[in-house]
Nucleic acid binder design. Structure first.
Length: 105
DNA sequence: CCCCTGACTGTCG
DNA sequence: CCGACAGCCAGGG
C-alpha cells in the first residue's frame, strides 16, 4: 500500500476524550500529506479493527484540526455531503484522485 | 443501563 | 451504479 507512516506522535490534543477518540485523532494526525487511510485502517491502528463506524462519528465531532479529509471510506469513497470539499482538500495535499475517487493501493 | 444514530465495510441482487 | 442486509463500535439522550 502506498500509505502508512511513522505514528510515533503523541496524543496531546483534546482533554476529555476517550482513549479510542484520542487514538483515532492521533492516527489521523499522523497521516502524511498526499497519503490517505480508510476508516477501517484508522480504527485498526486506534485499537478497534471493526470500529470504522465509530471513527467516522468521532471525526465528525472533532474536526478541531485533524486532517479528516485524509481519511476516506473503503474503495476510495469520499465523504457524503462534502465530496466537493473533500476532493479539493485532498488535491491540495497532493493526493491522487480519479473520477471523484481516491486512488487506493 | 437501554435505545438510536452514524463521515463504515463487505456481500448479494 | 445503486439499494438492501448484517456485523461492528462509540457517543449522546
Amino acid at each position: 500500500m502506498t500509505k502508512r507512516a511513522a505514528r510515533q506522535n503523541a496524543p496531546s490534543s483534546d482533554a476529555a476524550l476517550t482513549d479510542f477518540a484520542v487514538a483515532v485523532l492521533a492516527v489521523v494526525a499522523s497521516i502524511e500529506a498526499g497519503d490517505v487511510m480508510t476508516y477501517g485502517e484508522v480504527a485498526g491502528e486506534a485499537g478497534k479493527p471493526g470500529a470504522a463506524r465509530a471513527v467516522g462519528g468521532i471525526l465528525s465531532r472533532h474536526t478541531d484540526g485533524e486532517p479528516w479529509w485524509r481519511v476516506v471510506a473503503s474503495n476510495g469513497r469520499l465523504v457524503p455531503g462534502n465530496e466537493r470539499e473533500h476532493t479539493r482538500l485532498l488535491k491540495a495535499d497532493g493526493v491522487k484522485l480519479a473520477n471523484g475517487r481516491v486512488v487506493m493501493r
